[in-house]
Deep mutational scan, measured.
Amino acid sequence: NLRWTSEAKTKLKNIPFFARSQAKARIEQLARQAEQDIVTPELVEQARLEFG
């Protein structure tokens, strides 16, 4: 299971509600691909840039 830093959680809250669950799934996918067990603000930002 993935842990989220408080900064990453804050960044996730800045994503519009309607896109948040999809973004969260993508962020967690990116973390797993990078073999990380902690979601960082950088991963959230990477996903945000993908979504535009």
Rank of each mutant, 00 (worst) to 15 (best):
I27D: 00
E7L: 09
E45T: 05
A23P: 00
S21G: 11
F18G: 07
K24N: 02
D37Y: 14
E28M: 05
T10H: 12
N1R: 13
S21P: 09
I15P: 03
R3E: 08
F51W: 13
V39Q: 00
E42C: 03
L49S: 08
A31I: 02
R20Y: 04
E50N: 07
R20Q: 07
E45Y: 06
R32I: 10
A19G: 07
P41F: 05
P41N: 05
L43R: 02
A8M: 01
T10N: 13
R20H: 04
I27H: 01
S21I: 12
A47I: 12
A47H: 08
T5P: 02
R3Q: 10
K13T: 07
Q46L: 13
R32F: 07
K13W: 10
D37E: 11
L43A: 02
G52E: 15
A25F: 10
L12Q: 01
L43E: 01
A47N: 03
S21D: 10
L49A: 10
E7P: 04
A34K: 13
E50G: 07
T40M: 04
A25I: 12
N14F: 09
L2A: 03
E7W: 04
A25N: 09
T5H: 04
I38N: 04
G52H: 14
A34N: 13
N14Q: 14
Q46D: 04
L49N: 08
A31L: 03
P16S: 04
F17P: 12
R20F: 04
D37F: 14
F51M: 13
K13Y: 13
E50Y: 10
A23F: 13
N1K: 14
L2K: 02
I38W: 13
S6Y: 12
T10V: 12
K24C: 06
S6D: 14
V44Y: 03
I38S: 05
E42H: 05
E45M: 09
I15G: 02
K9G: 03
N14T: 14
L43T: 04
P16A: 05
L12K: 01
I15Q: 02
R32D: 03
Q29W: 10
Q46Y: 09
F17E: 12
Q29F: 13
L43H: 06
N1W: 10
Q36K: 11
S6G: 06
V44T: 01
E35G: 15
L49I: 11
R20L: 05
K11M: 15
E35C: 12
E42V: 05
L30E: 02
K11S: 11
W4I: 00
N1E: 12
I15M: 06
T5Y: 02
A25W: 09
A23C: 09
L43Y: 05
E28V: 06
Q36H: 08
R3V: 13
A47K: 01
E50K: 08
A8C: 02
P41R: 06
A47R: 02
Q46V: 09
S21L: 12
F51C: 08
E45D: 13
Q33L: 13
E7Y: 04
S6R: 14
S21M: 12
K13F: 12
P16Y: 06
R26M: 09
T40N: 03
E42S: 06
W4N: 00
A23R: 03
